[in-house]
């Protein structure tokens, strides 16, 4: 699994951090979401998919 975020469209709701804090965080300066672990281990995949489904701006991209 490869995870990326389109930062320009992120709205900083923090939904991804809530779903998978090992994989996502938010930058202190602007609140934009960032990927901590672009190739998360298998047991995190379900949480990452959930983050992508629930991201209100639809900016999380997953390649599997």
């Amino acid at each position: 699994m490869k995870v990326s975020i389109c930062e320009a469209k992120c709205i900083g709701a923090g939904v991804c951090v809530d779903a998978a804090e090992e994989v996502f965080s938010q930058r202190d300066e602007d609140g934009i979401a960032i990927v901590l672990d672009a190739e998360p281990r298998a047991e995190l995949h379900a949480a990452v998919r959930e983050a992508a489904v629930n991201c209100p701006a639809g900016v999380i991209e997953i390649q599997e």
Partner: peptide, 11 residues
């Protein structure tokens, strides 16, 4: 909204 975003992160 972006002006407020850094003050509302989950952390």
């Amino acid at each position: 909204r972006r002006m407020l975003m850094p003050r509302f992160t989950k952390a």
